[in-house]
Write a protein that binds this DNA or RNA. Structure first.
Length: 1004
RNA sequence: GCGCGCUUAGCUCAGCGGUAGAGCAUCAGUAUCACACACUGGGGGUCACAGGUUCAAAUCCUGUAGCGCGCACCA
């Protein structure tokens, strides 16, 4: 530090060192390193996203872990990247293109053109968040940055799809799915948020019909509904078969109003007779339960709401084209006019909303692709039952991670680690542990995952399709022969294609027909397929990533690729290994998989974490990470979620510009308790800034004392303050290291704050000024040596939290000079993490309880003395005289320190001092401290002060005595506690006596 | 409905069986030669409520209330 500004200026410093780290390749992970591995994969942010406070919290934690691991001597890989975020990105680009007038709907452009625009958008905006992470100081290995749509990554996604398809875990089916009419795509169950919504319960009257199909006057069935617009698609009214009120009606028909359609009354157990009227309208195409009933009763499906959320032609002339919300009003109006609306009442119920576009979800019957989750058992067992405790083996022992054969065994699908036996600990830990319950609950109630999305931006499903029509004459196999012909042709690619032939009408898988013996031309059309139609349609699906096969299918056979893309999470669930070069057994995979820690939010525990665990076991044969740390959610200081519309989400980059990245990191970490939401306040960052400034100035103070870095500490010259400080440092090292092991980051920051500010700056530095000002040169040098020792340790303790300023000071103070090149010489990043002071060190330097006691007694005296000054209204800058009547001899150093800290011009130590009547005094462990006041002594004021003190002493004495007078307390309490209470009683009693004496001396 | 978490100083939180703590805020004072992004001193809490266990409960158990979250869901 050639030039030392009075206040720390972070901007230039941060930029300088970040560039230095990049230039020196400090973040690059070496798979060939002999060091034990430590790895994290970043939760990939949305490629077009911007840094927000959630990212700051999340990535600061990861950076802290990575930097700590480097100092622990680990070979660290923090693997960064971005996610293509299908729906979000497509929506953003569509909006932008509409705004620019490029298109009205993406159909105007067509798939290819539209995707060109998305890629262009990605190129333009895709790097922003990465640059922002660099501003935060993130030590990611940027040479390995990945994107979920990279060609290599896409190949992984496709390979995984093919494998799961081959296993029969991926299938296509016509199902009632969660449809987002705004994004016009299917969603998974997880993407639906149930939100309490105020609505109405409408009671509709459906006229009953006689045998001739004529309405019976004044006879109605009453159905209740929250969605009257769906009545246009009703196909039945259902009652419970045991409901005696309605049994005689079952089998009769009612008139569906507005549609003038006759629909049956059916009996189904689903209906709860106690709810409403006990009659349920059945809308097979627009309600999952109704769909199930319709299947049981072979009811037709009438689709009245289209994929765009507007009423279809089937809804009838007056309604077609209306938005579903509008249609609701119009239907109700019509029914009311017809006198068929009995009543309606307010009704609060839960309605599923799209997590993406926030519109109400529409149950929608459509062909979708589903995944039956793989490796569920292993994925469940590896976490469930995880006990409270420290992190799971964070070491990643070098012998196992560099052992190729064992990895290959695991990768080839050997028994997962979780099956190692009942006594084995779960190999994965959640922190905080309670999230494992949420995880376990979800894992045991898995429903198949709808993985297809009706979007263009994403990984396109690698399935090619063709529909064939086969005449219904079993002896005519001419068309059936096609299967064999095609399959024979595809035989050339047999390792690379999976063929599946589905009977269109029934959805039944009937092929492939190729058998081991050869072609099975004798296609068996069973009765179900024979029934009904003169011809049969078959869907032929070929799943492949083989380019020649695709070429053949498309060019020779007229196949077309499935238009859907995959759910974004279907690519991100492969993130931990797809980013490391899988399916090749790369050195990176061998060294760094499984990863050590994952840091993410509990809101994506199902979306991402659980699925990654399953994918890890399925494709790597091993868990993807050993520890998962769940952060809280960042809220504003009023506890509200941060959102753009509220405008309560500060821009982290502005905060960095204003306070520095280190300040933002420290402030955020300090206010982030384990497992709870973070109430963020800019004040926290200000505090971080102040902290950095304090650190800067403490070093500046040391710098101004001059002299070289003092390496050698002379134990003979150590003062009680030196020893105290070394012990406090030792305590902090232990505390912070433990906090790290348990992921208690805010505890670590609190300890750092305390040891540096309250202990080092407030006490040690101030006390050290005594020898610096008046000590011998040897004493002065020794003090500097202790200062350097403590500061060089503290800089290292701070480094994971405050990477930039610690690097600047590490070099500026010259602490790097003595270190080996690779262990702190070049950068503090690789300086060894401080170890607790061992017993030899303590013995050699005389760090014992006695030194501690003296220093603490001095602090007590100083506080009491200052208090006395204040009570007597002596200005802080006025130097006064103090006299100590000591209980034990006082060392000259201690006397000098007391004089300095009390701002005394004279500090006498006089064992025989007799304070004149009424001289203010306090009683402390070191003795009796007198404050001789010039001029008049205000006896009344002194009496009042002493009386107050006496009251306090009386109260404390009484409190302890009450306990000690309890016979069962004395009898049952552990000896140490008893002793402690007795000691406390004696101290308070002694103090009380001294105060009483002083009061008596004042006279009356 | 089921499950989870929280309730301690004005605010944010720590403490999780043996003298109620921190930071911020507040009040009073201080330009003292590391730092006013600072220093010094002070005030402030019957630890949500009610029972129970214990010599001893903020801390353990049971229940209640309030707040928050997740899952499920009958029109």
């Amino acid at each position: 530090m050639s030039e030392i500004p009075k206040a720390y200026e972070p901007q230039a410093v941060e930029e300088k060192w970040y560039q230095f780290w990049l230039d020196q390749k400090c973040f690059v992970a070496n798979p060939a390193s002999p060091k034990p591995a430590y790895s994290i994969v970043i939760p990939p942010p949305n490629v077009t996203g911007m840094l927000h406070m959630g990212h700051v919290l999340n990535n600061t934690i990861q950076d802290i872990l990575a930097r700590k691991a480097r100092m622990d001597g680990k070979e660290v890989l923090w693997l960064p990247g971005t996610d293509h975020a299908g729906i979000a990105t497509q929506a953003v680009v569509e909006k932008a293109l509409r705004k620019q007038g490029v298109m009205k709907h993406r159909d105007d452009l067509g798939r290819e053109k539209f995707l060109e625009h998305v890629w262009a958008w990605k190129e333009k905006h895709g790097g922003i968040i990465i640059q922002q992470l660099k501003k935060l100081g993130c030590s990611c290995d940027w040479t390995r940055e990945r994107f979920t749509m990279d060609p290599d990554y896409s190949r992984c996604v496709q390979k995984v799809f093919v494998e799961l398809y081959k296993k029969g875990l991926i299938y296509r089916g016509k199902r009632m799915v969660n449809w987002d009419p705004a994004a016009r795509t299917a969603l998974s169950d997880e993407e639906v948020e149930m939100t309490e919504t105020k609505g109405h319960l409408w009671h509709l009257k459906y006229p009953m019909l006689d045998d001739a199909g004529q309405p019976i006057p004044d006879q109605f069935v009453i159905v209740a509904t929250t969605r009257p617009e769906t009545m246009l698609g009703d196909e039945a009214v259902a009652v419970n078969p045991k409901d005696e009120r309605y049994t005689k009606l079952v089998g009769t028909k009612v008139l569906l109003p507005l549609q003038n359609k006759h629909i049956p009354i059916i009996a189904d157990d689903f209906v709860d007779p106690k709810f409403g009227t006990g009659c349920v309208k059945v809308t097979p195409a627009h309600d999952p339960n109704d769909y199930a009933m319709a299947t049981r009763h072979s009811l037709p499906l009438t689709v009245v709401i289209g994929p765009d959320g507007k009423m279809t032609g089937e809804a009838g002339g007056g309604f077609a084209g209306l938005d579903r919300a509008e249609a609701r009003k119009v239907v109700v109006e019509h029914l009311e006019k017809l006198g068929l609306l009995l009543k309606f009442e307010d009704y609060v119920h839960n309605v599923g909303h799209s997590q993406r576009s926030h519109v109400p979800i529409e149950p929608y019957l459509s062909e979708q692709w589903f995944l039956k989750y793989p490796s569920v058992e292993a994925a469940t067992a590896c976490v469930v039952g995880s006990a409270r405790g420290p992190r799971a083996d964070s070491g990643g022992p070098p012998e196992s991670s560099s052992d190729q054969s064992s990895l290959e065994e695991r990768a080839s699908g050997g028994p997962p680690a979780a099956a190692a036996g009942p006594a084995a600990l779960p190999p994965m830990r959640f922190h905080p542990e309670r999230w494992s319950k949420t995880y376990a609950h979800w894992m045991t109630n898995l429903r198949d995952w709808c993985i297809s999305r009706q979007l263009w931006w994403g990984h396109r499903i690698p399935v090619w399709h063709k529909r064939l029509t086969v005449p219904n004459r079993p002896e005519n196999h001419s068309k059936v022969w096609w299967f064999s012909e095609t399959e024979r042709a595809l035989d050339e690619y047999r390792n690379n294609v999976v063929v599946r032939i589905v009977h269109t009408a029934s959805g039944r898988i009937v092929g492939p027909f190729k058998t081991k013996e050869g072609m099975d031309n004798n296609l068996e059309l069973n009765e179900e397929m024979d029934a009904g139609k003169p011809e049969h349609e078959f869907d032929v699906f070929v799943c492949t990533v083989d380019e020649p096969a695709v070429k053949y299918l498309v060019e020779e056979e007229g196949f077309t690729q499935d238009p859907d893309v995959l759910d974004t999470w279907f690519s991100s669930w492969l993130w931990p290994f797809a980013t490391m070069g899988w399916p090749e057994q790369t050195p990176t995979l061998r060294k760094f998989y499984p990863t050590t820690d994952l840091v993410t939010g509990p809101d994506i525990i199902f979306f991402w974490v659980a699925r990654m665990i399953m994918a890890g076991y399925e494709f790597m044969g091993d868990l993807p990470f050993r520890n998962v740390y769940f952060t809280g959610i960042i809220r504003d200081k009023l506890g509200r979620k941060m959102s753009k519309s509220l405008g309560n989400s500060p821009d982290p980059l502005e905060l960095i510009a204003k306070y520095g990245a280190d300040a933002l990191r420290f402030g955020t970490m300090r206010s982030a308790p384990l497992g709870q939401d973070v109430l963020f306040d800019e004040k926290d960052v200000e505090l971080g800034r102040n902290f950095c400034n304090k650190l800067w100035n403490a070093c500046r103070f040391r710098q101004m004392q001059g002299g070289e870095v003092q390496g050698e500490i002379n134990s003979a010259l150590l003062t009680s303050d030196d020893k105290w400080m070394l012990l406090r440092l030792d305590a902090a090292i232990r505390e912070i290291s433990t906090a790290f092991a348990e992921y208690r980051f805010n505890e670590a920051t609190q300890a750092l704050y305390r040891v540096f500010w309250s202990e080092f700056c407030d006490w040690y530095l101030e006390a050290a000024k005594a020898p610096m000002q008046s000590g011998t040169s040897a004493q002065k040098a020794n003090t500097l040596a202790v200062l350097d020792f403590v500061l060089s340790h503290m800089l290292r303790l701070f480094h994971p939290f405050l990477p930039h300023i610690t690097e600047e000071l590490w070099h500026g103070m010259g602490y790097s000079a003595d270190m080996p090149e690779k262990q702190g010489g070049k950068t503090i990043m690789f300086a060894p993490w401080p170890k607790p002071l061992d017993q030899d060190f303590r013995d050699h330097y005389g760090l014992n309880d006695r030194a501690l006691a003296i220093a603490e007694a001095k602090q007590e005296l100083v506080i009491q003395g200052r208090n006395l000054r204040r009570e007597k209204n002596i200005p802080a800058n006025k130097r006064v005289k103090f006299i100590l009547k000591p209980a034990d001899p006082v060392a000259p150093h201690d006397q000098a320190v007391l004089q300095l800290l009390l701002n005394a011009d004279v500090f006498d130590v006089d064992p025989y001092f007799q304070g004149p009547k009424g001289m203010p005094s306090v009683h402390v462990k070191l003795g009796e401290l007198f404050l001789p006041l010039e001029g008049l002594i205000d006896a009344a004021a002194e009496r009042a002060r002493l009386t107050k003190e006496l009251e306090k002493a009386n109260a404390e004495t009484a409190k302890v005595e009450q306990k000690l007078n309890n016979p069962s307390f004395v009898q049952k309490v552990p000896p140490a506690v008893l002793e402690e209470h007795q000691k406390r009683r004696a101290e308070w009693q002694a103090k009380r006596e001294l105060i009483q004496k002083a009061l008596a001396a004042l006279g009356s």
